[in-house]
Amino acid sequence: MSLRYGAAMADFVLVAGARLGSWAWDEVVPHLVAAGHDAFPLTLSGLAERRGEPTGQQTHVQDIVDEVERRNLRDVVLVGHSYSGIPVGQAAERIGDRLARVVFVDASVPADGEPFVAEWPDGGAAMTATIAENGGFWPVAAAAHYRGHGLTDEQIARIVSNSTPHPGGTLTEPAVLARPLDGLPATYIKCTLGDPEPGDDVARLLTNQGWRLVEMDTGHWPMFSRPRELARILDQILIDAPAK
């Protein structure tokens, strides 16, 4: 497949956030395929149907790299939601010229030597304690966690019933970057419902030429609350992106 700006077809590798698996993209994939793209939702080690597999943060990075290489994908758009921005951001620099763009969907972005929990207000102390109390896992969140994000009761019930405890090491282990993210071709999708502004780390990255911001008027889980709109944004990203 040859990527052509202005009429871009791409291979989308979709990675959902903590506790979720490939199933989280079920309502997004058909819209991407209908637009002419190939879409590959990925379950990371230790989650969903891969629950019980040993894993760490670098295992998740390798999961993504292996998916790209195993399928021999080209013109790849890596999409990371929430926690998965951490491994996706690391994988993006490791797949070389296969990468067309990386998309962070209301996601954390990796910084070399920093873990996911570092961005939390208490430096991750409460989350780290919770992981220790739950056998090394971040437990599944209750329904109340998802309220106020533009989700229906049915959507919340689906998320809760299909979620799995998240392997704690992936949240507390440091990211490993050979270079800063500044030079990546990247789009940050900010979900503005209840939290309208990107964090300071993302705001700094958005000052770089290859980065751009797209806003969605919905909550943190747009693949459930606005799947058609999210797919439309993803479809347009390469057309609207700054030229390489």
Results as ranks from 00 to 15, higher is better:
residue 4 R to C: 11
residue 4 R to T: 13
residue 7 A to F: 13
residue 8 A to H: 00
residue 14 L to I: 12
residue 16 A to F: 08
residue 17 G to N: 08
residue 22 S to I: 05
residue 23 W to C: 04
residue 23 W to I: 09
residue 28 V to G: 09
residue 28 V to Y: 07
residue 40 F to L: 15
residue 40 F to G: 00
residue 47 L to F: 03
residue 50 R to Y: 14
residue 56 G to Y: 03
residue 57 Q to G: 09
residue 59 T to M: 10
residue 64 I to S: 01
residue 66 D to P: 01
residue 67 E to S: 09
residue 70 R to P: 01
residue 75 D to S: 15
residue 76 V to K: 03
residue 76 V to P: 08
residue 81 H to F: 10
residue 88 V to N: 02
residue 92 A to G: 10
residue 95 I to H: 03
residue 98 R to S: 07
residue 101 R to P: 04
residue 112 D to K: 00
residue 112 D to V: 00
residue 116 F to C: 03
residue 116 F to N: 00
residue 119 E to S: 15
residue 120 W to K: 07
residue 122 D to C: 04
residue 123 G to A: 08
residue 123 G to E: 10
residue 125 A to G: 03
residue 126 A to R: 09
residue 128 T to P: 02
residue 129 A to D: 11
residue 132 A to S: 02
residue 140 V to T: 11
residue 143 A to K: 07
residue 144 A to T: 10
residue 146 Y to N: 02
residue 149 H to E: 10
residue 152 T to L: 12
residue 154 E to Q: 12
residue 158 R to Q: 12
residue 165 P to Y: 05
residue 166 H to S: 05
residue 168 G to T: 10
residue 171 L to M: 12
residue 171 L to V: 01
residue 173 E to K: 08
residue 174 P to T: 13
residue 179 R to S: 14
residue 180 P to Y: 07
residue 186 A to L: 10
residue 186 A to E: 06
residue 191 C to P: 02
residue 192 T to P: 07
residue 192 T to W: 12
residue 195 D to W: 14
residue 196 P to N: 07
residue 197 E to I: 11
residue 201 D to T: 09
residue 206 L to T: 03
residue 208 N to D: 13
residue 211 W to K: 03
residue 211 W to P: 04
residue 212 R to H: 14
residue 212 R to M: 11
residue 213 L to P: 01
residue 215 E to N: 14
residue 226 R to P: 04
residue 230 L to P: 02
residue 231 A to F: 06
residue 239 I to T: 15
residue 240 D to V: 14
residue 241 A to S: 05
residue 242 P to I: 12
residue 243 A to V: 15
